[in-house]
Design a protein around this nucleic acid. Structure first.
Length: 117
DNA sequence: TTGCTGACCGACG
DNA sequence: CCGTCGGCCAGCA
């Protein structure tokens, strides 16, 4: 009933992973979802990012894009060009709201973090 | 408590 | 190729 003492909401998990994204790299909502075990609930990942503005710590949500490498959440980030500027500032080429060489810049927590373990 | 919504993803026609 | 639908989970009125 009610709620159990969830130590960390899955939101926190998303923020944590998002902060682990190295500069010049991007990841997808689905990738984070899978890493958390929510295979198809990529929506929740985006929702979590919505709260990123409420956090005391800035979360690099601009490094998180959709599966197509498209900056779908740029509008929510706080500015349409802001997200693109941040990505380009980190060395990620963004054209037409789309990440260039996305597959090369793609950073999958399931793989990168798995190698560490 | 129920119902709706949401920065996605994948499948189907 | 493009449009539509379902699924997935959590937060909010």
């Amino acid at each position: 009933m009610k709620k159990q003492p969830n130590k960390e909401s899955f939101f926190e998990q998303v923020y944590e992973v998002a902060r682990l994204i190295p500069h010049g790299r991007v990841t997808s909502y689905g990738a984070i979802g899978q890493y958390l075990g929510l295979k198809s609930s990529a929506r929740m990942v985006g929702w979590a990012m919505n709260n990123c503005g409420s956090l005391s710590v800035p979360v690099p949500a601009h490094r998180v894009v959709n599966r197509n490498g498209l900056l779908t959440g740029k509008h929510h980030f706080g500015g349409e060009n802001l997200m693109q500027e941040l990505l380009e500032s980190e060395g990620v080429a963004v054209i037409d709201d789309k990440v260039q060489d996305f597959k090369n810049k793609f950073w999958d927590p399931n793989i990168e973090l798995d190698l560490e373990r």
